[in-house]
């Protein structure tokens, strides 16, 4: 199983060059059964990464471009009167896919955003009294453009909380970009084929959830969370949901790295991705104050009894 996972990650990395860490984080996010938020400028490979993830895991994929006039129904689907059958027929929206790329999520109106987030949380869609369950597994990869733009609706903190992780891709380094450019022609055509079966993936998910977490690690997580609450340095302290997310993500990370137990390194590795967007009051100004999650990490000693 470990081999398959590593092979999958390698395959994606070959596609999204120079982003080993982000790819692994994204993969562990899916492994922890959580939704992913990618925040970056256009053209950094957000869509490529999503595509690659979908392909490698053999998931159905759809992409919804969020705009200010997008209505919930546009995304969720609509009941349309079928003149042939003389009955209303459910016309499923683009959300009925295993992996949904919600592009520029902050452009949509709050109403649409909350419809999406509700679907993410409940894994089902309710329409005209009918409940349509979403496919399983169901992942949403949301993207946001961090540059301040007018006419956007930044996701409120409560909703940012629904994304297990938030990652930034950032510019590739010289080497990686060169490699990308030189191999551009051959790569584009070569579509990724599925490396893992869906059943295998859900097995891995279950295994990851079983990873042993000792008291020492749980105490460490608690100390981190408590520090965020009591130090007064963080505008938005971490919620119990955040601490749960932190544990889940750490487990997935440990699983990917072939361990059946948690060490503080796992927590430290996933913490920026899991906690940063929860600690911030709004998503803007990423580059201003430096990373809050790193401040948090540096303040808490993993060994202290």
């Amino acid at each position: 199983m470990q081999k398959k996972i590593n092979a999958s990650i390698d395959a994606i990395c070959r596609h999204v060059i120079g982003k080993q860490e982000q790819v692994t984080l994204a993969f562990s996010c899916l492994l922890a059964n959580g939704h992913l938020l990618i925040e970056d400028l256009p053209g950094m490979g957000k869509t490529t990464l999503s595509h690659a993830l979908a392909n490698v895991l053999g998931l159905q994929f759809s992409r919804i471009q969020f705009t200010s006039d997008l209505l919930p129904a546009d995304m969720l689907g609509v009941n349309i009167f079928d003149s042939n059958e003389q009955a209303f027929k459910f016309h499923p929206g683009p959300i009925f896919n295993q992996l949904v790329l919600a592009d520029e999520i902050n452009r949509a109106s709050p109403k649409t955003q909350s419809a999406l987030l509700e679907a993410m949380e409940e894994k089902q869609v309710s329409l005209d009294g009918q409940t349509h369950s979403l496919p399983s597994p169901f992942f949403v990869i949301g993207t946001q453009n961090p540059m301040h733009q007018s006419g956007t609706y930044p996701l409120p903190e409560s909703q940012l909380d629904r994304f297990l992780m938030r990652i930034q891709l950032g510019y590739p380094d010289w080497q990686a970009e060169k490699l990308m450019l030189s191999s551009a022609q051959s790569k584009t055509e070569k579509a990724l084929s599925a490396v893992m079966q869906l059943s295998e993936f859900s097995q891995a998910q279950q295994a990851a959830a079983q990873i042993h977490s000792s008291d020492a690690v749980i105490d460490y997580i608690l100390r981190l969370v408590t520090y965020s609450r009591e130090s007064g340095k963080f505008p938005n302290p971490l919620s119990p949901r955040a601490s749960k997310a932190l544990l889940q993500a750490s487990r997935a990370w440990a699983y990917i790295h072939g361990r059946d137990y948690l060490v503080p390194e796992d927590v430290q590795a996933v913490l920026p991705a899991v906690a940063e967007h929860r600690l911030r009051s709004s998503l803007t100004d990423l580059h201003g104050q430096g990373s809050l999650s790193h401040q948090l990490l540096e303040a808490v000693d993993p060994l202290a009894a």
Partner: peptide, 8 residues
């Protein structure tokens, strides 16, 4: 350094 875990 206080925040470095054992393995690292």
């Amino acid at each position: 350094t206080a925040h470095i875990p054992p393995e690292t």
